[in-house]
């Protein structure tokens, strides 16, 4: 059974501290949900766990079954069992969806045990059907021209094929219509077992109607400020976050106040241009 342990995690991007001491433990069989207003560090936490190169960890630790995750490269983390369904997955023109997933599956297998094309296609087609995705998907370029909902389903498709032990789903419900939400929810619920720990990042209780969670955490100012059961989520769904802020004496829940935010955006653009030169 996998255990992901995050302790006092601090991380910064572009010189700004975004995560300010996150502690959280997720075990196989458990489902945790993280809620929180916009810009409070939820996606950043997910990116730091997965190892996005733009974020720098300044303090704290992450371990998976006692192994130091922070010492691992992104791909090593994936092969160790971590999976992140991204809020905004990248588009990769020229790389077909099926080639990508097949390469990813084979990356986990040693040379003698590489997947046969036949076996791969069979399980891929099955997963595509279970997610009620369109059949031309295998030949389409990775996420290119996918609708918002198709991208989300494609993330879950990858999760189904790669069978991680810890999966983080960042706003998997956003952009999904009611039917699609049910399909995605059912597929995730079906994957639940004692060897899968789930972390759902969401804004709405609705998702938990389809994927039940045991623990709910609220994130503000780059930290988990409150944890509780499903009741906590229900209360947020009807009453919003004000009462929590009052209870904890928080004035601005965001990590970075408004005007600072803008400067950082400029910084990002500048690096992008420099890269393109």
């Amino acid at each position: 059974m996998a255990i992901l342990k995050i302790e006092n995690l601090h991380a910064k991007v572009e010189g700004k501290e975004i995560l300010k001491g996150v502690s959280l433990t997720i075990k196989g069989g458990e489902t945790h949900a993280i809620m929180g207003p916009n810009g409070t560090g939820k996606s950043t936490l997910a990116s730091v766990i997965m190892g996005h190169p733009r974020y720098e960890v300044t303090e704290g630790s992450i371990t998976l079954d006692g192994e130091d995750v922070l010492e691992m490269d992104v791909d090593e983390r994936a092969r160790a069992g971590l999976f992140l369904a991204m809020q905004a997955p990248a588009e990769v023109p020229g790389v077909t969806n099926s080639d990508f997933i097949k390469t990813a599956m084979n990356a986990r297998l040693d040379d003698e045990n590489k997947l046969s094309l036949f076996k791969f296609i069979r399980s891929y087609d099955k997963a595509v059907q279970e997610l009620k995705m369109s059949e031309d998907l295998p030949h389409r370029y990775l996420n290119e021209g996918f609708s918002g909902g198709e991208k989300k389903r494609n993330e879950i498709l990858q999760m189904k094929m790669l069978k991680p032990s810890i999966a983080i789903l960042d706003e998997i419900d956003s952009g999904l219509d009611v039917d699609a939400l049910k399909v995605v929810g059912d597929n995730v619920t079906e994957m639940k077992n004692d060897n899968l720990g789930l972390l759902l990042i969401t804004h709405y209780q609705r998702l938990l109607d389809y994927i039940s969670a045991d623990t709910v955490h609220v994130m503000m100012q780059g930290r988990i400020v409150k944890s509780g059961g499903i009741d906590l989520m229900k209360k947020i769904d009807t009453q919003g976050y004000e009462w929590i802020k009052e209870e904890l004496g928080i004035e601005d829940e965001r990590v970075i106040p408004e005007d600072d935010d803008e400067r950082i955006m400029l910084g990002t653009c500048a690096t992008k241009e420099a890269l393109e030169e």
Binding site: G51, D73, V74, A78, M86, A104, A107, Q158
Partner: peptide
């Protein structure tokens, strides 16, 4: 990052 996050 996206491709590597799947184990490549």
């Amino acid at each position: 990052y996206y491709l590597m996050s799947r184990g490549l």
